[in-house]
């Protein structure tokens, strides 16, 4: 008990908020990742591109494969609701979720930093979210 108290000494409130959100978000992410993959490879949902076709072309570069198979990339999955019901899309979305995990964590730190009146780190966290959102938006591609 004493050790436990000692361990939590000196850890600021914001860090505790970040770790709590990170724990929840990553647990959900890994469940989705495994679940999504089984839905994909067991073909429990129809696929937008058959696995054999992907495997027959995985020696090509990403650009060549995209050109040849018209593989969906970025947020193009959301173009139609029918696309979202594909097994491979479902598996891809679980990966997207993992890539957004840090954005969720950072979003929760901003109110905590503001409460602590730590405006330098509020600004750093804000700009970090902007960088990640710009990357996730695909604008730079």
């Amino acid at each position: 008990m004493m050790d436990k108290n000692k361990k939590s000494q000196g850890i600021d409130n914001v860090q505790q908020v970040y770790s709590k959100v990170l724990e929840n978000v990553s647990h959900v992410g890994f469940v989705l990742l495994i679940g999504g993959y089984f839905v994909y490879i067991l073909q429990l949902l129809p696929l937008s591109i058959p696995i054999d076709v992907i495997a027959g072309n995985w020696h090509l570069s990403a650009a060549e494969m995209h050109q040849k198979l018209n593989t969906p990339s970025g947020w193009s999955f959301f173009a139609t609701t029918a696309m979202l019901m594909k097994g491979d899309v479902f598996s891809s979305l679980s990966i997207y979720y993992l890539a957004t995990a840090t954005i969720f964590c950072l979003l929760f730190t901003i109110p905590a930093y503001i409460r602590d009146k730590n405006y330098i780190y509020t600004t750093i966290a804000f700009f970090q979210i902007v960088v990640l959102l710009v990357a996730a938006s695909g604008i730079i591609n």
Binding site: I95, G138, I140
Partner: peptide, 28 residues
Amino acid sequence: LSINGAAAAWVYIFKGAVIPLIAVPAIG
């Protein structure tokens, strides 16, 4: 790493360089 990796991962995702067929068994 978790922040830098997430930022760069989006570039790979948008270039079509992330295939779940390969990525998920590797992660697991």
